[in-house]
Design a protein around this nucleic acid. Structure first.
Length: 501
RNA sequence: GGUCCUGUGGCCGAGUGGCUAGGCAGAGCUCUGCAAAAGCUCCUACAGCGGUUCGAAUCCGCUCGGGACCUCCA
């Protein structure tokens, strides 16, 4: 019996997954900064960890999934100008920070729904946890690992490294960090350049500001995740996820802060997804190559030759392994679109009568085929258990697709498979595709009146065909195509239809 | 510069040392009034050069190319 193994960034190897508390899993995933619109790159971690979440639920765990929303600007802790990101942009857009944050939070939630991701159990905001962050900083000062300078507080990395494994997660070597030749402004307050801000004094023009024991200011970049993860998941929890670009310094700093405050390493399994690239380059703000999700869904971006359905994007992402880079291109997205359609058409075909008639045959008519189907399903479990290899799992479904289609077309008899296998295919496919991978039909849900109209049209067309009146039958089909409805005459004489997007 | 990852057929991608993933595109055939869909078949690649091995896309070394992080970032 295969069990879940996942790649732990901390140990750089796959490890069997055993939760800290039997039957329960605590999972934290770094969420978005809602100072702007989410883009395709953001979609990857949320979809990746949605599958992780769904699978853990499927395995029967009670999961507390925490995914934060960063709505406070504290991004310039190395402080070139100490300007709050949100405050800065809100001035440009003439908006209140909170208005901006609300707007982009709503957009983000909307996009996550489009992707059919399950909402997290807790979705804490940074601004809602200023108190917890201040408390944590106080603890760090008391413990002697943080120091205050001019109303700002910094974490003493050098001191931490003397007694702890600083850099273990990211592979950094402290001496290298201390000796880096990079020149940054606003470093003079720090004892060492590797130190990072826990609290920053706010300049007068700063809009986001909170009172603290060290004066008016705002929290540092890393402390929110430590504070909120501790609050909702405890001093130590099972899984922490995020993009690989957060390994350093964000997650490394989280480990340092939490380790001092909680006297234990905070996370047992660190999982990091790789980036989505465009023309071989990471999609990110700094590269000016982002395709926002609204643009992606609408097809309104110079790089896009068409609009892409959220499910196409989800499927595209699941067709690669989450730890590999995934290169965006129209060709690749279109391939995903067609692939998903093929898979989904075949999957929908499992609801055809031939699959659900009462089976009287006791055994498989084609033992070899029957075995193959069972093997393919067995392997799906193994692949998913093997660090969430959704790519391999989906490949197996495609191997099954041609058999399903052949059964639907009557090229293979349903009795080739044993009743048990038939049942297994139907239930397990639904479980994997819908419940675990979170895939959905791309077409709109059927409308009853439309179905009635379609039934009528198909009947008229059938009658026309019977009397060889092909001009009428073709007229119906061709007119429907211009309306975006495609007819498919099937082997058995029936006709199915689908709405193209 | 430092740390690390990576280079697979037209495109995207999976690959645990031996059993040619899969998707898309392309070609042919079958089914079909035609079309679409579907089925079958074909296209058999691992940057280069060495090495280890009975055997390497997979391990090691070097070279070349691409990328990530070290600064906001998923």
């Amino acid at each position: 019996m295969s069990t879940l193994r996942l790649y732990n960034s901390l140990t750089r190897q796959k490890e069997p997954f055993h939760p800290l508390v039997k039957g329960r899993v605590g999972m934290y995933v770094c969420g978005p900064t809602v100072s702007g619109e989410s883009h395709l790159g953001h979609a990857r971690p949320y979809i990746t960890f949605d599958v992780v979440y769904r699978y853990l639920l499927h395995l029967g765990y009670q999961v507390r999934y925490v995914r934060n929303i960063t709505d406070a600007g504290h991004f310039e802790e190395e402080g070139r100008e100490a300007i709050d990101k949100i405050a800065n942009k809100s001035k440009l857009e003439q908006l209140e920070p909170m208005e901006l944050v609300s707007k982009y939070t709503r957009l983000y939630h909307w996009a996550m729904e489009q992707f059919n991701t399950l909402p997290p159990s807790v979705e804490p905001t940074a601004t809602g946890h200023i108190v917890e962050q201040i408390e944590m900083i106080k603890q760090l000062i008391e413990a002697g690992y943080a120091y205050e300078v001019n109303g700002s507080v910094y974490f003493d990395v050098k001191k931490y490294a003397a007694g702890h494994e600083y850099g273990k997660l990211s592979g950094r070597i402290l001496d290298d960090l201390l000796e880096t030749t990079r020149e940054l402004e606003g470093q003079e307050e720090k004892r060492n350049r590797a130190d990072f801000a826990l609290w920053k004094a706010a300049a007068p023009e700063h809009i986001m500001r909170w009172a603290s024991p060290w004066g008016v200011g705002y929290p540092g970049w890393h402390i929110e995740c430590s504070a909120m993860a501790t609050k909702y998941l405890g001093k130590q929890f099972d899984i922490h996820g995020g993009g690989m670009d957060l390994l350093f310094p964000h997650h490394e700093s989280e480990i340092a802060q939490s380790t001092i405050c909680n006297h234990t390493a905070p996370v047992r399994y660190w999982m990091h997804n790789n980036m989505i690239t465009i023309n071989g380059r990471k999609m990110g703000q700094s590269y000016n190559n982002v395709i926002r999700l609204t643009e992606l869904f609408a097809g309104t971006h110079p790089e896009l030759s068409q609009a892409y359905h959220p499910m196409t994007v989800r499927f595209f992402i699941l067709q690669s392994h989450y730890r590999s880079t995934l290169d965006f291109s129209n060709e690749a997205l279109q391939a995903a679109e067609k692939g998903l359609k093929r898979l989904w058409d075949a999957y929908s075909g499992l609801n055809a009568p031939v699959w659900s008639e009462p089976f009287v045959h006791p055994t498989a008519g084609d033992a070899e085929l029957d075995q193959r189907m069972n093997r393919l399903l067995d392997e799906v479990l193994e692949f998913v258990n093997d660090d969430f290899n959704t790519a391999k799992a989906l490949a197996n479904f495609f191997e099954m697709v041609s058999v399903w289609n052949s059964i639907k077309d009557g090229l293979i008899s349903i009795t080739a498979l044993s009743p048990a296998t038939i049942q297994r295919i139907r239930t397990e496919t639904k479980t994997w595709l819908e419940d675990v991978f979170g895939l959905q039909a791309v077409t709109e849900a059927d409308n009853e009146k439309l179905s009635g109209v379609m039934d009528l049209l198909l009947e008229i067309r059938k009658e026309a065909k019977l009397r060889k009146d092909f001009s009428t039958s073709d007229k119906i089909r061709d007119q429907l195509i211009t309306l975006g409805i495609q007819l498919k005459d099937e082997k058995g004489g029936g006709t199915s239809w689908m709405i193209d997007n």
